[in-house]
């Protein structure tokens, strides 16, 4: 049974908001069309834009609802699956050691697809190839739990510069950058217009963060659940009145690569909490 996605509701209620939207659109059209990168010392995690209650929730594992996903992921890590009858732990051992810093290095270059692959994609690939298990859907509870558990092992570590480590990613980085700066959707808005040019200001009462993907998968209060970066990107596209790509689309991987590069050196905080 598919629930009506909560993020779709603002669109349905959009009728009453037209004057405000028109004003917002007029304001955004008045902005310069070019975007300048945020200087490295001025970068801030989304954490910096949250209220004290939400920060406290993220800081304390006993209050962070994503901890439940991490615990579930830990159980799945040790559970045998698929025709090969192997668990993640049978090859990778104790994730607390073997997965330290792993999530901070994604997206990476994947030889099979000759393009970037994200952490969820790698888990799905490993599951198909090594465990010979039926695939997990993107945003499925199991995949989010496993990726939350793996990402947790990178908390506190710096986001790696994947492009510096592997030059084959360079063209995909440029594609991601172009996507980030491309105006799209009914209000012709680009990611950069909000997140490079107007971060720190507010949009409909919410602070505009800089869009650094340091906490994914994360627990979003609006979702009432853990979700991936791709889900967050889809949310943004719906908000921009653009048509979101399907889960797993190469555009998301290019964007994720650009965002990770843009956040290089920042501290991983997965699984984070966001409002």
């Amino acid at each position: 049974m598919t629930a009506f996605p909560r993020e779709a509701f603002p669109r349905l209620r959009g009728e009453k908001r037209r004057p405000a939207l028109a004003a917002a659109a007029a304001f955004l059209f008045a902005l310069p069309a070019f975007a300048a990168d945020i200087p490295l010392p001025d970068r801030r995690s989304g954490y910096a834009f949250m209220g004290p209650d939400t920060r406290a929730m993220q800081d304390d594992d006993t209050q962070n609802p994503a901890t439940l996903a991490v615990l579930e992921g830990e159980a799945l890590w040790a559970r045998k699956a698929g025709a090969a009858g192997r668990a993640c732990a049978d090859c990778h051992g104790d994730a607390r050691e073997s997965m330290t810093g792993a999530a901070a290095r994604y997206p990476r270059f994947d030889d099979a697809s000759a393009g970037p692959i994200d952490l969820e994609g790698r888990i799905m690939q490993c599951r198909a190839r090594r465990q010979e298990a039926p695939p997990l859907a993107r945003e499925s509870r199991e995949l989010l739990a496993l990726s939350a558990f793996v990402a947790r092992q990178s908390r506190g570590l710096p986001v790696a510069d994947a492009v510096a480590a592997d030059a084959r990613l360079a063209p995909f980085l440029e594609r991601g950058r172009a996507l980030f700066r491309r105006r799209q959707g009914q209000i012709a808005l680009s990611c950069a217009q909000c997140h490079d040019d107007n971060w720190g200001k507010s949009l409909a009462g919410n602070a505009i963060p800089q869009a650094h993907p340091t906490g994914y998968p994360l627990y979003r209060l609006e979702w009432q659940s853990v979700g991936s970066l791709q889900r967050r990107l889809r949310n943004c596209m719906i908000g921009m009145r653009a048509e979101p790509y399907a889960y797993g689309a190469p555009e998301y991987l290019d964007l994720a690569l650009y965002l990770a590069w843009r956040a290089r050196g920042m501290t991983m905080e997965a699984p984070a909490v966001r409002p």
Partner: peptide, 22 residues
């Protein structure tokens, strides 16, 4: 004492995309 449990807490007021009540 702090407790937290994983549960969807589905309200019963929502519907699926096909319009069926959850």
């Amino acid at each position: 004492i702090r407790t937290m449990i994983s549960h969807p807490m589905e309200t019963g007021f929502r519907r699926t995309q096909q319009g069926e009540p959850i």
